[in-house]
Amino acid sequence: MASTQHPSNSSKAYPGHVGSRPRQQMLRWVDPRHKSAGYLGFIFNRVAGIGLVLYLYMHLIVLSTLTRGPEAWDGFVAFAKSPLILAMDIVLLAGLLGHGLNGLRVALVGSGIAVKQQRTLLNGVLVLAGVLLLIGGALILVL
């Protein structure tokens, strides 16, 4: 079974590789030069994942408003309809779609399924995420 590391990496980049210094690993991780499209997709998943973890905790804080009664929640709902929050909702949707669909691709390729078609899969993910973002983003603005 493959690790969470993208298969296009060298064995030196194995997660938890004990031999390298953390700083070197970090620099390799964030350096986009000489990286394949698949690897960049893998990095995108990591970055989007960090953003989504932060959002998870923000979402829990927002939901706690419900325990303070109708006035507190309905006040938040009114605030959430401001253009800035709607724009952030679209960014959030982009992160969710990208992370979710690209995560499926990483899981398939990491399982040894469709390894040779990973470029096609990546293009498919980009197209599907783009279409769903257009529909979902339009609905956020229209509703």
Binding site: T4, P15, G16, G19, P22, W29, G49
Partner: peptide
């Protein structure tokens, strides 16, 4: 988050 932390060796 654990996987990301482990990526840094």
């Amino acid at each position: 988050a654990r996987s990301i932390a482990y990526d840094f060796g």
